[in-house]
Every structure is written in structure tokens, then in C-alpha cells.
């Protein structure tokens, strides 16, 4: 029997190796992966590539006559020239909606995680429940809520917060409200998942070490909930930027977003320009996501 020096600094209870999930080698993994991966390849990857190539087709073609690849970069220039305004508007609306979602969603997620006690599950169900009523039907009900004869407009007029000819419906406000409403659960759920993992004793330790409630939140809770905040922001911003339902149902022609234009161009058969706009939207989003994730300093997505 050999004798060694001081024992390995025993900090943790047991070796980490003991509780890691067993990962099997061999072909089974590939076989399990194959059908799904194939599906995503054919119906996501290949289409994306097709979309990029379509965006470079000669815009003179049509569905009937077919398109020819002419590396027509002009499609991008045309698209941005003609629809730059809608582009900017989409990003601004999506940004406003995301900020509104954070302002509404963070306290809600926080309350569910730390203040709800035995009502936690019920509150979670309540967050998801409105989801099950059709997206479009709910959006339509905002038409009624924000309508000129609606309770909200009447109240605001009585309070003199809205002029006598003021509207809520068919304004940018209505569109942002709709976006905020529709994507709020996407903000709340990842935030909740992140907050729930935080040991409340960490915050107590913060208070013990002379942090005011605000400082404790800023220095402890907020940084620890960052992965959820990042995921929630992405899950809100991305679909909001591409949405056109809210702009169509709650807005006017002056609130049209890029999604409306892409949809209409596809509907009209102007595939190359529509594709160019889609690719541009995707590129802008990828760039913004990349910058945001770098700034937020988290590598973990979802």
C-alpha cells in the first residue's frame, strides 16, 4: 500500500462523475436524431437557402413563367428603398413592445417566483391560460376594448387625458399594445424559470450585508435572472418584429410593419423582392440578437 500526501481538498459531497447522466456512444444517437434533423433540414434549412437564392432572382419572372437566377442584388436596394420606413417602424414597435413586456412581465414573474406562496401553480396557469383562446380572436377583442365607443376611450376623455376627437384604435399605441399583449407570456415564462432558481437566501444575505432592497435587487436578483431576461427579450422582440397581425387589425395604413409588406408582396407574386425583405429582416434580427447577447454577457440561449 502506497501512501500519498494530503488528501484531495474535499469540498463537495461526492465526485461529480457519479451524478452526470450516462451518455451512450454508438449509432443509436444518430438514428434517434435523424428523422427530426431531416425534417428541420428539408423544411427549415433548405427553405432558408431557397429564400436567399430567391431574393437574387430576376424580379421580372412570375410563378407561372418561372424565375431565373441573375444575382439581382438590386432587389435588396429596391426593397430597402421602398420599405425602409416600414422596416424602421417594425423595429421601433417591437422594441417598445419588448420594453413594455419587461415592465409588465418582470414584476409578474418576480411575484410568481417569490411572493405567490401556495398560489404559485395557479398563477402560472393563469399566465398561460389566455394563450388558449385564439391569438386572432383575442387581438380582435382589443378592437372592442380600444374602440371609440369603448370604456377605455370614454374614461380617458372624461379624465381629459385624451382630446375630444382622440382615438386609441388605429394608432401606433394600439399596435404596440396589441404586440405587448400577445407576446407577454413569452417574456414571463423564461423570466419565471430564471427567477425561480434563485435561492432567496442570497437576497437575504445581500440585506444582511447592508444592501438596501433596491441595491439587493440590482446587484443580486437582476444579474441572476439575466438568462431569463435575455431569453424573454429575444422571444418577445423577434416575433414582434415580424408580426403583421396587430398592425393590420389594430392599426392603419400608416402603421404598417415590414411583415405586412412581405405578406402582400408574396401575395402579389413579387417573390424576389419579398424574399429580399425577408432575408434583410432575418439579417437585421440576427445582428441585433448577436450584439444584445454580447452586451448582456450570457452565452446561454433559452
Amino acid at each position: 500500500m502506497s501512501v500519498s500526501a494530503a488528501h484531495l481538498g474535499g469540498g463537495e459531497q461526492q465526485q461529480a462523475a457519479a451524478v452526470e447522466p450516462p451518455q451512450k456512444r454508438g449509432v443509436t444517437g444518430y438514428i434517434l436524431l435523424l428523422p427530426g434533423a431531416l425534417w428541420l433540414t428539408i423544411f427549415f434549412l433548405v427553405p432558408t437557402i431557397t429564400l436567399v437564392s430567391t431574393s437574387l432572382y430576376d424580379p421580372a419572372g412570375s410563378v407561372e413563367t418561372g424565375y431565373s437566377m441573375t444575382w439581382h442584388w438590386q432587389n435588396y436596394v429596391d426593397g430597402i428603398r421602398d420599405y425602409g420606413v416600414q422596416f424602421g417602424r417594425s423595429l421601433v414597435y417591437a422594441l417598445l413592445a419588448t420594453v413594455a413586456c419587461i415592465l409588465l412581465g418582470y414584476p409578474l414573474a418576480y411575484a410568481i417566483a417569490f411572493k405567490s406562496g401556495r398560489w404559485k401553480n395557479l398563477m402560472l396557469v393563469l399566465v398561460i391560460a389566455p394563450f388558449f383562446t385564439s391569438f386572432l380572436v383575442r387581438t380582435l377583442s382589443w378592437q372592442l376594448l380600444l374602440g371609440d365607443n369603448g370604456f377605455l376611450v370614454e374614461t380617458l376623455k372624461t379624465l381629459q387625458l385624451l382630446g375630444p376627437d382622440g382615438h386609441l384604435l388605429a394608432t401606433p399605441f394600439a399596435v404596440v399594445t396589441g404586440l405587448t399583449y400577445n407576446f407577454l407570456p413569452f417574456m414571463v415564462l423564461p423570466l419565471y424559470a430564471s427567477l425561480e432558481k434563485i435561492d432567496p437566501r442570497l437576497v437575504e444575505a445581500g440585506h444582511d450585508l447592508y444592501a438596501s432592497p433596491f441595491t439587493a435587487f440590482r446587484k443580486i436578483t437582476l444579474p441572476l435572472s439575466m438568462p431569463g431576461l435575455v431569453a424573454g427579450t429575444l422571444l418577445t422582440f423577434i416575433p414582434a418584429a415580424g408580426d403583421y397581425i396587430n398592425a393590420e387589425l389594430l392599426g392603419t395604413p400608416t402603421t404598417r410593419m415590414i411583415g405586412n409588406e412581405i405578406q402582400d408582396l408574396f401575395g402579389a407574386g413579387a417573390y424576389p423582392v419579398a424574399a429580399a425583405l425577408s432575408v434583410t429582416l432575418m439579417a437585421v434580427i440576427v445582428a441585433m440578437v448577436f450584439l444584445y447577447v454580447r452586451r448582456a454577457g450570457t452565452e446561454e440561449l433559452v
Binding site: 488528501h7 484531495l8 469540498g11 463537495e12 465526485q15
Partner: peptide
């Protein structure tokens, strides 16, 4: 008997 990481659990496993 041994401290954490001494190999006792691995032996058992």
C-alpha cells in the same frame, strides 16, 4: 471510509 474524492464511491459503483 475516506474523505470526499478518495475513490470509495467509485469502488462501490
Amino acid at each position: 471510509l475516506g474523505p470526499s474524492g478518495c475513490g470509495k464511491t467509485t469502488t462501490l459503483r
